[in-house]
Design a protein around this nucleic acid. Structure first.
Length: 801
DNA sequence: GAGTTTGAAACT
DNA sequence: CAGTTTCAAACTC
């Protein structure tokens, strides 16, 4: 399993899946579209995840690169370079996509396991079978002609899709009708490289790229053959380079380059930004947007650049890794032509992933890098962006435990948990059943610390800024722990001199650029990961960290699930559970049901933590066996003509009238639907009871908000006043404002306030008025204090003079 | 905070 | 699939 399968897609929260774009695309679903909680249970040839696209249903063609003259070279494995050239190639050639056809071509390097599957493209050459896959381009590396021949001899037709191993899935939304040419040139037989597809022995990282929200337009894609051997070869690293003919692609050290055109509303002239980081650059060129550079990996010298609006997922993983990247483009964009070139630089054992979110015209840049030589864990990264909505990213380090991957989507009640097999190349050519081959076996890595699952919702930069303390300086601040248990909060600045060593980044670390296009962003460590780290007795934080362990990171950003806005979600952390008998391993537990670890809960005998990972995974599997959709969001899209949001199963309320939070529909602030089996339901549109309740709730909420705002404003004003006077006072004498608030001053102030209270009482003023008078008096007192302080400062200054 | 109510989850 | 039990949250006092 190298690519997220459609089945797995079904596990995604409806909030993610039920995007307008998806519906518009009418993406065909496999007949066996059953939820597959674990990849181990599902023999999937590939794992691909396509979330949304603006493309018309008929437009399923995908473009990997924008221009025909551009050259894309894919080098998988240091020993087996693979390139895609515009020149006709017997291996893989994708001609201009037919607007109505959706094809998927996937070839796999039997040895390296690297595979590239191209979907949504028209198959031009015989050797490859292109299966329909909407808005997905999957390039399967073809190790050599021999491999393909072997596959042919095996009766598997030219297409080699079964191979496991390093795979690159590029899902892009291109413009339909545009010529697309993809070629996977024969690569010479490399010594030590098995030619048979069945070679599953070689550990190979898996790289998943999913792009969501593309456009119907396809850009001509031309891959250029380029066999490049790099230093990674010696390290048995596999590098996939898809380079567009750009200055950056020519860089020798560049292993892997993916050029992606990002959807953008803006029609700015195409500019090429090809930041080269450690010789590896991922460049995204768009005619409508500035190029975006993504650096995925660097064996030894890893650097990350971050551009505004982009987020970077970093996962330092040693072993062959599996990376899933989901890029969601904003479906709102109506740009006529959008080309997507997704450069991916993948070295064997690297796992990072890039996520692209382009709802706005802001430049996006994702750079991730990992050192293959260092311990790394497979990571899956999923970024989802809804129309005009917030965007999310989930970075899931592949479970260190064999065959298990988990995606946790933090959020209110509706989260997504997925278990997938962290297979390596060993599973190549085989249905991915439960595989015993683990990453550790394939390549020893430091995973003994236990699997770490994390969810990193990617929210707008502002939101992240709220959650993550912003470094005041550009200096890199890293919390270093052993192995994968590391945390980093650091400015994601593109400046080379401050490039952090991302090998110390924990899996799933996300670099979030600062809002406003600033150079300084943030490296956001998965909240859950942090949580677990803090819970784990094995975690030690290096004192070198400039950040307190708990600085704001624990606040989990939440998905805007169930119609809740991001801000709303983020501002309302999940309530702690109080489980006593379920060990927090049953769906009774909200934490568990949400796919989260218990954190700061009041539960007893909790097993929903890293310390009980085995039990937890078993419980998850049990739940999924019982109900494959157990972890899917309950609130999803309704049928045609129904409300956009509805409960997936409907409620069964009998006594609450569906107007209390006992009712899951009411709790989700949605009305009951036809599938509900409730009795005496009052939770419908015209229900007067419901309206009354809603009004009351709204009024209460407004009141709370007003009170909060008033408090905040008052506090800020007071702080502002004090701050404004501080320089004057402290500059000369060094005395701070509060030093003027002596006991006498306090007493006098209190007397003034009491006097005001008495006045109000005598005047029989209502309480509200009395409070107002007291507050006003307090303000006056403050002003007098401040004024006195200023005078004292002036007097002092005059005396000194 | 204790006790009750409620409905989903789990079980049979 | 239906009925029952278990469970934890929601709710009430």
């Amino acid at each position: 399993m190298d690519v997220v399968s459609p089945e797995l897609n079904s596990l995604l929260p409806d909030e993610i899946m039920d995007t307008e774009a998806i519906e518009d695309v009418a993406q065909p679903q496999p007949a066996d579209d059953t939820s597959v909680p674990m990849e181990t249970d599902t023999p999937m040839a590939s794992e691909s995840l396509t979330l949304c696209s603006d493309a018309a249903p008929a437009d399923h063609t995908q473009a990997l690169t924008a221009s025909t003259d551009s050259t894309h070279s894919v080098t998988a494995g240091g020993q087996l370079p693979i390139s895609i050239s515009s020149a006709p190639s017997p291996l893989l050639t994708l001609k201009p996509a037919l607007a109505t056809s959706t094809t998927t071509t996937k070839t796999t390097d039997s040895v390296t396991g690297t595979s590239i599957t191209t979907s949504g493209l028209q198959k031009l050459t015989a050797p490859f079978t292109i299966s329909a896959a909407n808005h997905q381009i999957i390039l399967n590396k073809v190790a050599s002609s021999q491999a393909s021949e072997a596959a042919k001899s095996a009766g598997n037709a030219p297409q080699v899709i079964k191979h496991e191993g390093q795979k690159l899935l590029v899902t892009a939304i291109g413009k339909s009708g545009q010529p697309i040419v993809l070629q996977l040139p024969h690569t010479g037989n490399k010594p030590g490289i098995a030619q048979t597809s069945g070679d599953a022995k070689s550990p190979t990282p898996q790289f998943k790229v999913v792009t969501i929200g593309g456009r119907s337009e396809l850009k001509p894609v031309v891959g250029s053959v380029g066999n490049q051997l790099t230093t990674l070869q010696a390290q048995q690293l596999k590098t996939v380079q898809i380079a567009k003919k750009t200055p950056t692609s020519s860089a020798a050290p560049i292993k892997f380059i993916i050029t992606k055109t990002v959807n953008s509303k803006g029609l700015s002239p195409q500019t090429s930004v090809s930041p080269i980081i450690a010789g590896r650059v991922l460049t995204q060129n768009s005619q409508v947007m500035p190029p975006r550079t993504i650096t995925l990996s660097e064996p030894h010298n890893t650097t990350i650049q971050s551009l505004p609006g982009k987020k970077i997922a970093i996962s330092p993983l040693k072993t062959p890794s599996k990376v899933t990247v989901v890029s969601v483009a904003s479906p709102t964009s109506n740009a006529s032509q959008k080309s997507v070139a997704l450069p991916v630089n993948v070295a064997l054992g690297q796992q990072i992933l890039t996520v692209q979110q382009s709802t706005s015209g802001s430049p996006v840049k994702v750079a991730t890098s990992q050192t293959a030589a260092q311990g790394m864990k497979p990571v899956q990264s999923v970024a989802v962006g809804g129309m005009g909505g917030s965007q999310f990213k989930t970075i899931i380090p592949l479970a260190t435990q064999p065959n298990v991957q988990q995606i946790q989507v933090p959020g209110s009640r509706f989260h997504y948990v997925r278990l997938v097999t962290a297979t390596t190349a060993s599973s190549t050519g085989q249905p991915s059943g439960p595989s015993t081959s683990s990453l550790q076996t394939a390549k020893p890595m430091v995973v003994s610390t236990g699997a770490v699952r994390m969810s990193v919702p990617i929210v707008p930069a502002q939101t992240i800024k709220q959650v993550v303390p912003k470094p005041l300086t550009s200096a890199t601040q890293v919390v270093t722990t052993n192995q994968t248990q590391q945390r980093l909060i650091m400015p994601a600045t593109p400046l080379p001199q401050i490039q952090p060593n991302f090998t110390n980044l924990p899996p799933g670390t996300v670099l979030a650029p600062a809002p406003g296009g600033g150079n300084v962003g943030y490296a956001v460590v998965p909240a859950q990961y942090v949580t677990q780290l803090q819970q784990s007795p094995f975690v030690t934080l290096a004192s070198s960290s400039g950040f307190p362990p708990s600085t704001g990171i624990q606040t989990q950003a939440r998905l805007p699930l169930n119609g809740l806005s991001t801000a709303e979600s983020t501002s309302r952390p999940r309530k702690p559970c109080n489980c006593t008998k379920s060990q927090c391993l049953k769906l009774y537990c909200d934490c568990f049901a949400n796919g989260e670890f218990c954190n700061n809960c009041n539960c007893n005998n909790c097993f929903n933590n890293l310390e009980h990972e085995t039990e937890r995974l078993k419980a998850i599997k049990t739940c999924l066996d019982r109900n494959p959709e157990a972890f899917k969001p309950k609130i999803g899209k309704g049928k045609e003509g129904e409300s956009d949001r509805r409960h997936s199963k409907g409620c069964n309320c009998k006594r609450s009238g569906c107007l209390k939070n006992y009712c899951e529909c009411y709790e989700a602030k949605i009305m009951c639907s036809s599938i509900c089996k409730c009795i005496g339901c009052k939770n419908f549109e015209e229900s007067p009871e419901r309206k009354t309740l809603m009004h009351l709730a709204d009024a209460a909420e407004v009141r709370v908000q007003q009170q909060t705002a008033a408090k905040t404003k008052l506090s800020s004003q007071i702080s502002d006043l004090l701050m404004r006077t501080t320089p004057v006072i402290s500059s000369g004498s060094g005395r701070l404002p509060y030093t003027f608030v002596t006991k006498e001053v306090l007493e006098a102030t209190c007397e003034c306030l009491l006097e005001q209270a008495k006045k109000a009482e005598h005047a029989h003023q209502p309480q509200v008025e009395a409070e107002r008078m007291i507050l006003e008096e307090f303000g006056h007192c403050l002003m007098r204090i401040i004024s006195s302080a200023g005078k004292a400062k002036a007097d002092c200054a005059s005396i000194n003079c």
